[in-house]
């Protein structure tokens, strides 16, 4: 494979994991726009640890742990808010993380940080497949059932004994861990991190992949991230029109399939080859 393809592949993997980070909270019905902040934690965490002499797997694991611990601590106050207020709180968290990094000379401030240890495409791919397997597994358990139930009707779920807050906190924390992982892989692939890269647009894209792919199945984020990372590349031939085309595709898709590309009834119809019931 060419260097170009490997590079696109690695970016795609990072996007897929980031999309799953967004998916975890979205699956419980809350929009987390702090993905970039947790990615920054993961990226800088892993960078600092490997620069301090840790082996790469350990430093990535340490970064994921850091992101999940911060996620757990943040989730309690953040999940007291609901809907748009929760989203704003996560957005604010993300901005605070970036602002802190930008002001810390020890982290390179605005000039960024060189990361020791390079990670190629293949290990990133294996990790990504592991993440997909993990989320697919989680979605198949009662935990996944509870996530969907809370998204559909949180009070209705509570009547049947679902501890909605616990499930939401767990989902948020797993999301933070995945975002941290995505950030750490990103840092080691490019061997360089800078705080400005972790802006709100990065979080928005992670959410967009998930929503376009569909929330109803754990494969939605994978499909969404793959399609919308590769589509701009495939449209490269059309030059400056590619973002126009890309934007138009998103609008049309949202009009035609507002629940995302990959819905449960879509899969059901694929397997049974008969009209929707």
């Amino acid at each position: 494979m060419s260097g170009y393809a490997l590079q696109i592949g690695a970016i795609l993997c990072v996007h897929v994991i980031a999309a799953y980070a967004a998916y975890m909270t979205l699956a419980a019905g809350q929009l987390n726009l702090g993905i970039a902040g947790f990615m920054a934690l993961g990226a800088y965490g892993s960078a600092v640890l490997s620069n301090a002499g840790w082996a790469m797997p350990q430093s990535i694991a340490g970064a994921v742990l850091l992101a999940s611990l911060v996620g757990l601590c943040v989730s309690y106050p953040v999940l007291r808010a609901r809907g748009i207020y929760l989203t704003i709180a996560t957005l604010a968290f993300s901005e605070v993380v970036v602002a802190l990094i930008l002001n810390m000379e020890s982290l390179g401030a605005a000039s960024g940080l060189v990361v020791v240890g390079h990670l190629g495409f293949w290990p990133i791919l294996w990790v990504t497949l592991g993440v997909v397997a993990l989320v697919v597994f989680l979605a198949s358990t009662r935990f996944g059932l509870c996530l969907t139930a809370i998204r559909n009707d949180a009070q209705g779920a509570a009547v049947f004994g679902v501890r909605t807050r616990r499930i939401e906190v767990t989902a948020f924390t797993i999301g933070a861990a995945l975002a941290g992982l995505a950030g750490a892989l990103y840092a080691h692939h490019f061997s360089y991190v800078e705080a400005q890269r972790f802006n709100v647009l990065l979080s928005t894209y992670a959410v967009l992949y998930t929503l376009l792919g569909g929330l109803q199945t754990p494969l939605g984020p994978l499909v969404g991230a793959a399609l919308f990372t590769l589509a701009p590349e495939l449209l490269r031939g059309t030059d400056e029109w590619r973002y126009v085309t890309f934007g138009a595709v998103i609008v049309v898709l949202m009009l035609l399939r507002s629940e995302g590309l990959f819905t449960r009834s879509f899969i059901h119809n694929l397997m049974h080859r008969r009209p929707a019931t």
Partner: peptide, 22 residues
Amino acid sequence: FQNLRMMKHLTVLENIMLGQHT
């Protein structure tokens, strides 16, 4: 519930399973 509280993204069987949670 009088006004149904179905989980629309779950199948019939999964909706019933929710009741087993505890």
